[in-house]
Design a protein around this nucleic acid. Structure first.
Length: 417
DNA sequence: AATTGTGTTGAC
DNA sequence: TCAACACAATTG
C-alpha cells in the first residue's frame, strides 16, 4: 500500500467534452437486504439472476448501496474519492457532477449539463467551485451542505461586494451553515445578528483515555454540564438530546450530540465527537475547553471549543496537529467582529440546535495573519493556500478532510443541519 | 443491527 | 477510469 488514498490532486483541468445527459432513469428499483451479494432470492430461473444484484445506476459516478441508497464517487489518480451517499439517485449524480467540475474543470463530462440554470449562476458556481479546494467541495458533498454553502456565497457575493471587509463573512457564514440541502421551505430571510465577541470561559476538561477512545463520546463533568449545558426536559433528556454546534479555530463547525446517559448517569457528547478527536488528534491528557460568546442578544449563546495538548500552556495545536490552520486565539485576538452568522437556530422536533464556535486559545502566538478562524481574508489567497495544502504538504490534512465522515442520512437535514 | 464507504478486482 | 462486489469499520 502506498499513500493512503485520498488524493488531492493538482488543479489540472482536463477538458473533456460535454455530454448530453443520459436519459433519466424512470424506474425506481428497490432493493433489500444487505451486502452486495444479497439475494432477493426468488426462485431463480436464470433470468431472474439479474434481480439479485443491485441495480446499477444510469448515472456516472453513482453506485448503488445495499440499503437502497446511492453512493457517489469520482476517481482521481487511480483512487476513488467518495462523495457520500444519497437517497436519490439523481442527488448522487448531481454530487458527482459537482465533483467532476471541480476536479476536472468546467468541461468535464457530467450527468446533467449545466450545473446551474442561468449562465450567470453557472458562472458564480464555477467561481465558487474554484474558490474551494477539492477537499472542501468533497466535504460539502458528503455532508450535503454544498447547496447551502453555494447559496450563502451567492448572497454574500451579491449583497456585499466592493466592501473590503466582507470577504471573511463569506467564509464564516459558510462555516456556520446549517441547513441541509433539502430544506427549501422557510428560507433565508432570517437576518443576521452580530456577535460582538466576548468570550466566557466555561470549563476545561482533560480528556481521559475513554474520551478519546473507542467509545466515541466525551463525558462532560456533571457539575459543568448542568451548569452550562442544561438539557431541557421535554425536548431532550429522554431521547436524543440536543445538537450543539461549535466552531474550531480553523473555522470549522463541529456538531455534537449532547445528551444524558441514564445508564452511566452522565452527560456526554456523542455523535460527532469521534470525528473531532480524530481530526485534532486528541490524546488522553489533552485538554478541551468550552467557551461561549456573550452575544448581545443574550440569548444567543454561541459556543466554542478549544483544545490544547497535554503539555499545557504553549504548544500549539496548530503546529502539532496541522488540523485547521492557524491558531488565532480568539481569546487574544477576539473582538474580531467576526460577525453575523446566519442565525438559523431552528429547532427541530425534539432536537434543539445551538450555534457555537470553537476556538483555539493555545495559539495565541504572534501569528499575524490574515486568517481568521482559519479563513483567509482574501479569497485569492484561499485558493492558493488550499491548493498548497493539498499539495504534498497537506496530504494529511487532505486526508482528514476527506475522511471526515459525513453526516449520513438526511436526518441531518432534518436534524437541522 | 444498520449503514457507510473502503478494498479489490476486472472490464473498458 | 469506472463500477461491481464483498465486507470491515462506523454509527445508531
Amino acid at each position: 500500500m502506498d499513500s493512503s488514498s485520498c488524493t488531492e490532486v493538482t488543479d489540472s483541468t482536463v477538458s473533456v467534452t460535454l455530454v448530453p445527459s443520459p436519459p433519466p432513469p424512470p424506474d425506481k428499483l428497490y432493493r433489500v437486504g444487505s451486502g452486495a451479494s444479497v439475494v432477493l432470492d426468488a426462485a431463480d430461473s436464470g433470468v431472474e439472476a439479474e434481480s439479485r444484484k443491485l441495480p446499477s445506476s444510469q448515472y456516472k459516478g453513482v453506485v448503488p448501496q445495499p440499503n437502497g441508497r446511492w453512493g457517489a464517487q469520482i476517481y482521481e489518480k487511480h483512487q476513488r474519492v467518495w462523495l457520500g451517499t444519497f437517497n436519490e439517485e439523481e442527488e448522487a449524480a448531481k454530487a458527482y457532477d459537482i465533483a467532476a467540475q471541480r476536479f476536472r474543470g468546467r468541461d468535464a463530462i457530467t450527468n446533467f449539463k449545466p450545473l446551474s440554470e442561468t449562465a450567470e449562476d453557472d458562472e458564480v458556481e464555477s467561481a465558487f467551485l474554484t474558490s474551494h479546494s477539492k477537499a472542501e467541495i468533497v466535504d460539502m458533498l458528503r455532508k450535503h451542505t454544498y447547496n447551502d454553502e453555494l447559496q450563502q456565497s451567492k448572497r454574500n457575493y451579491n449583497g456585499m461586494r466592493s466592501d473590503g471587509s466582507n470577504h471573511l463573512i463569506s467564509k464564516s457564514k459558510m462555516m456556520m451553515n446549517c441547513r441541509g440541502l433539502y430544506v427549501k421551505s422557510a428560507g433565508s430571510a432570517s437576518g443576521s445578528a452580530s456577535a460582538s465577541a466576548a468570550f466566557e470561559h466555561l470549563f476545561d476538561k482533560a480528556v481521559t483515555p475513554s474520551d478519546v477512545g473507542k467509545l466515541n463520546r466525551l463525558v462532560i463533568p456533571k457539575q459543568h454540564a448542568e451548569k452550562h449545558f442544561p438539557l431541557q426536559i421535554g425536548s431532550s433528556i429522554n431521547c436524543k438530546g440536543v445538537l450543539l454546534n461549535f466552531e474550531d479555530n480553523g473555522g470549522k463547525v463541529w456538531r455534537f450530540r449532547y445528551s444524558y446517559w441514564n445508564s452511566s448517569q452522565s452527560y456526554v457528547l456523542t455523535k460527532g465527537w469521534s470525528r473531532f478527536v480524530k481530526e485534532k488528534s486528541l490524546k488522553a491528557g489533552d485538554t478541551v475547553s468550552f467557551l461561549r460568546s456573550t452575544a448581545a442578544g443574550g440569548q444567543d449563546r454561541q459556543l466554542y471549543i478549544d483544545w490544547k495538548p497535554r503539555g499545557a500552556g504553549a504548544a500549539t495545536a496548530t503546529t502539532t496537529k496541522a488540523s485547521d490552520g492557524c491558531g488565532l486565539s480568539l481569546f487574544q485576538k477576539e473582538q474580531h467582529q467576526l460577525v453575523r452568522l446566519p442565525q438559523q437556530q431552528q429547532q427541530q422536533q425534539t432536537i434543539g440546535v445551538q450555534e457555537c464556535r470553537v476556538v483555539d486559545s493555545v495559539n495565541a502566538g504572534p501569528v499575524q495573519v490574515v486568517r481568521l478562524f482559519g479563513v483567509d481574508i482574501f479569497n485569492g489567497v484561499i485558493n492558493q493556500v488550499n491548493d498548497q495544502i493539498n499539495g504534498d504538504i497537506g496530504r494529511k490534512r487532505e486526508l482528514e478532510l476527506l475522511t471526515v465522515e459525513s453526516c449520513k442520512k438526511q436526518c441531518l437535514a432534518a436534524e437541522a443541519l
